Simulated scan of single mutants.
Amino acid sequence: MTLTQLEIFSQVAALRGFTLAAARLGISQSAVSHAIKSLEQELGVELVQRHQARVELTDIGQRLLLRARSLLGLAETMRQEAADAKGMKQGTLRIGSFGPTASMRLLPALLADYRQRYPGIEIHVEEGPDQQVVQWLRERRIDIGFVVLPDESFDSWPLLEDRMVAVVPRRHPLAARDALSLRELCDDPFILTGAGSAELVMRLFTAAGLTPQIRYRCSQLLSTLDTVARGDGVTLLAELALPAHDQTAYVSRPLAPQVARRIGLAVLDQRQSSPATLAFVRQALMLRDAGRLLKP
């Protein structure tokens, strides 16, 4: 068993295909097939089931994938600790990000500062809904991710706090109010967006004993806001996720009582995090404390 085999296995699992994994790794498809077959023969189990268009992991393949990614993460940590002794001139950092708040308001300043200090670190950014980032952390697909806090399953560092706001069509009767309650948002068709804190939104309604009339589920923030602007429903979003311009067709109002949302960075286990990962945390906290974290 080699680290190369484990890396190929991890890529096949992530991309659900031999061809895509080969393209990502820059090797031939036959080399990918050979590596998987050799690994299966050595372990004595079938790791993947091959279908026409894609592959699926077997049950044991799913379990061993976590072990493989753990080993790959430890190997990368060893490489980076060695590189750190020489000035951290090389390495890889995989970041998970969700929604406009993390991807557009936080990441630009963080990446600019980090790349200037560590130009040799190769950075990969994966974007998905908030719960997808959490899953990626648990599966070790990323080294560090932006998450909604608190989350006791990770080692985390708070970065900022904003508030949840109701977003309604500008000509809606609720637009004349200074603040809105969760109950008032249950009287209209509700638009649930997967672009940000959908999990937090549903927890708020559940905790209040309310059930919104979910008529739309939008994967993108812009489509969510466009649906509101057309007058087709109302929604609940984090204030920092809203664009600073083009709010002519909808308005945002704070909740009463106000609900805060805390965003932070999280890792699965700080003790096993690579030097590149911990350096990213340090840079983020320095920018936070200096008031330079948010992009206007």
Rank of each mutant, 00 (worst) to 15 (best):
T2K: 13
T4C: 07
T4K: 15
T4G: 10
Q5F: 08
L6R: 15
L6P: 07
E7D: 12
I8R: 10
S10V: 01
S10D: 08
R16C: 00
R16D: 01
F18V: 15
A23R: 14
R24I: 07
R24E: 13
R24V: 06
L25F: 11
I27M: 15
S28G: 11
S28W: 00
Q29H: 11
S30C: 08
H34E: 10
H34P: 00
A35S: 11
I36F: 05
K37A: 15
K37H: 12
S38L: 14
S38D: 14
L39R: 03
E40F: 06
E40K: 02
E42N: 12
L43R: 13
G44S: 02
V45P: 06
V45L: 11
E46A: 13
E46L: 12
E46W: 05
E46H: 12
E46K: 14
V48Y: 05
Q49V: 03
Q49W: 04
H51N: 11
H51S: 14
Q52D: 12
Q52Y: 10
Q52W: 09
Q52A: 11
R54A: 08
V55K: 04
V55I: 15
L57M: 12
I60E: 15
G61V: 06
G61W: 03
L64Y: 13
L64Q: 12
L64G: 10
L66D: 12
R67M: 06
A68H: 09
A68N: 09
R69V: 00
S70M: 09
S70Q: 11
L71A: 12
L71V: 13
G73C: 05
G73F: 06
L74Q: 15
L74K: 09
L74F: 03
T77Q: 15
M78Y: 07
M78D: 15
R79S: 11
Q80C: 01
A82R: 15
A83W: 06
A83P: 04
A83N: 02
D84K: 07
K86S: 09
K86V: 05
K86R: 14
M88D: 07
K89Q: 14
K89R: 12
Q90I: 06
T92W: 08
L93H: 09
S97C: 01
S97N: 01
G99A: 06
T101Q: 02
S103M: 05
S103Y: 03
S103E: 09
M104C: 12
M104Q: 15
R105N: 04
L106G: 03
P108T: 03
A109I: 04
L110K: 12
L110A: 08
L111D: 07
A112I: 04
D113R: 15
Y114Q: 09
Q116R: 14
R117W: 08
Y118D: 04
P119C: 14
G120A: 03
E122Y: 09
E122L: 09
I123R: 08
H124L: 14
V125L: 04
E127G: 08
P129K: 00
P129N: 02
D130S: 13
Q131H: 11
Q132N: 07
V134M: 05
Q135Y: 07
W136I: 00
W136G: 05
W136R: 10
W136S: 02
W136V: 01
L137E: 00
L137N: 01
R140E: 08
R141Y: 06
I144F: 04
G145T: 01
V147A: 04
V147S: 06
V148A: 14
V148S: 11
